[in-house]
Design a protein around this nucleic acid. Structure first.
Lengths: 153, 153
DNA sequence: CTGGGTGCAAAGTGTTTGCACGTTG
DNA sequence: CAACGTGCAAACACTTTGCACCCAG
């Protein structure tokens, strides 16, 4: 997992082009627009919601949902995006240009709050070591009710 | 989330019957057999694998996959089983008769190692408090390569 | 004997794939 | 101009649902 934290858009783009070149893949308008849209609308996207946004923003490109899936999978394989899998109804993807973090998810409004915590990361390493397990990555999600939704009730 | 830790099978059964009664639902052979099978073969089941095991163990009941899904959902709603959602290919369910724990998942052999860690649980509470977030539950999964599979390579 | 439960098959989801055509390098 | 990429629709995998019959209470 290479370090792509805190990169601005141009650097992400360069990195993406590099990955494409190294794999004999081509840089297309569709691929560009997926990356750019995820960057500009910093958020957690379902393939569907990203698809909708792309149709709206670039109607002339006529992007297909299959391309969105293909591009997201490509970006994930290249460690440029990360996916979260919730209970049901598919994954959400986020651009990996931020330091590693985990997520708190509100059960009421589905809002996602990001947080980082080194203490937990460190403890995870210790636990893995104890079991002789070689850690590559993890996912942690805290579920509950966010401040806003608590007040509404 | 009521406390159903460390219950033996009979207590689980009583609890299940109570839940059914309170909701005007019926105690059927199929529902009984799902609970019993999960208890006897303490494991993480996909609906499919549980279904296979049921067909093998109780061929005369002729259980349908739909009933397995319905029963697992019912048990989950009643907080008697918990589900894990992995990257893709659906959820796995486990009976909630053990203290809370999290999972390490081997990317090579798909083996699941359970562990508990109070330090992390406590830290999660602290983080949630910091954001005014009311925590109800969480899931944490560590991905990597287990000891066995490391040796094989 | 009545309302919920079941198996079956069909319908829903979300995601991937085969194909003919289009575009990149 | 030779791949590779794309949109489309069909295929897939997993899960839910409508229905006629069944069974628990």
């Amino acid at each position: 997992m290479a370090d792509i934290e805190n990169m601005e858009y141009d650097s992400l783009l360069v990195r993406f082009k590099d990955i494409l070149k190294h794999n004999n893949l081509k840089f297309t308008k569709q691929r560009e627009v997926v990356l750019k849209t995820m960057y500009n609308n910093d958020d957690h996207f379902s393939p569907e919601s990203l698809y909708m946004l792309l149709k709206e923003s670039y109607p002339e490109l006529n992007v297909g949902i299959a391309t969105v899936y293909r591009t997201l999978n490509l970006l994930e394989d290249s460690d440029m995006v990360t996916s979260l899998s919730f209970g049901s109804s598919g994954k959400k993807f986020e651009l990996g240009n931020k330091p590693h973090h985990d997520h708190m998810i509100c059960k009421v409004c589905d809002d996602i709050i990001e947080f980082e915590d080194n203490a937990i990361e460190k403890r995870q390493e210790e636990i893995a070591n104890k079991y002789g397990f070689k850690l590559t990555n993890h996912m942690m999600q805290l579920y509950g009710i966010c401040q806003k939704c608590q007040k509404k009730q």
